[in-house]
Every structure is written in structure tokens, then in C-alpha cells.
């Protein structure tokens, strides 16, 4: 592993699987390709989007491209004072 990879990701994303309609537009929008539609179904019968768990850069594009009001929340890494 290189030194860069031990740095924490700049962003993080959560998906509310029960509000997601599985349209996949967030997957299309994500440049580092860290989103994918899950193999399982939510209670409505859609494959909800899932975050791979790492690699998010906090660009927010998935949020902007998601048609549902609250399906995606994007977080950014708070600046930590240099040690």
C-alpha cells in the first residue's frame, strides 16, 4: 500500500435503502465508481444503491443526481488540526 491510501477518504456517503428507487443515476454520476446497485431488494422491490464503504471523495454528484429527496446523504471529512 502506498502512503496516500492510508489517508482517510475525503468523503462518505449513506443511502437510505427504503427511500431509494434503484434508478442507478447515482451510480452513473460517481467518478471513482464507489456506488453500485445492491443484489438484494428493498421492501418495494428495488435494488437499492450501496456504498462500497471506501473511496468516496465527497464530490456530492451522487446527491445532486439522485431524484429522491432523502435517499442520499453526503458527508465530508472535517479538517483535523495537523498533528
Amino acid at each position: 500500500m502506498t502512503q496516500a491510501n492510508v489517508q482517510p477518504d475525503r468523503g462518505y456517503v449513506t443511502i437510505n435503502a427504503e427511500e431509494c428507487k434503484g434508478c442507478g443515476l447515482c451510480v452513473e454520476a460517481c467518478v471513482p465508481r464507489v456506488l453500485a446497485l445492491a443484489a438484494h431488494l428493498n421492501h418495494q422491490g428495488y435494488h437499492p444503491a450501496e456504498y462500497a464503504g471506501s473511496g468516496c471523495n465527497g464530490c456530492g454528484l451522487c446527491f445532486h443526481c439522485c431524484p429522491e429527496p432523502g435517499a442520499i446523504t453526503v458527508y465530508k471529512l472535517a479538517r483535523v488540526a495537523a498533528a
Binding site: 456530492g60 446527491f63 446523504t73 453526503v74
Partner: peptide, 13 residues
């Protein structure tokens, strides 16, 4: 929903 790791604040909601 996954737990948000510490150190992250909401950017878009």
C-alpha cells in the same frame, strides 16, 4: 444504514 465514521460532517442532505 451504515454508521457514519467519526470525523465526518454532513455536506449534502
Amino acid at each position: 444504514m451504515a454508521e457514519v465514521p467519526t470525523g465526518y460532517t454532513v455536506l449534502h442532505e
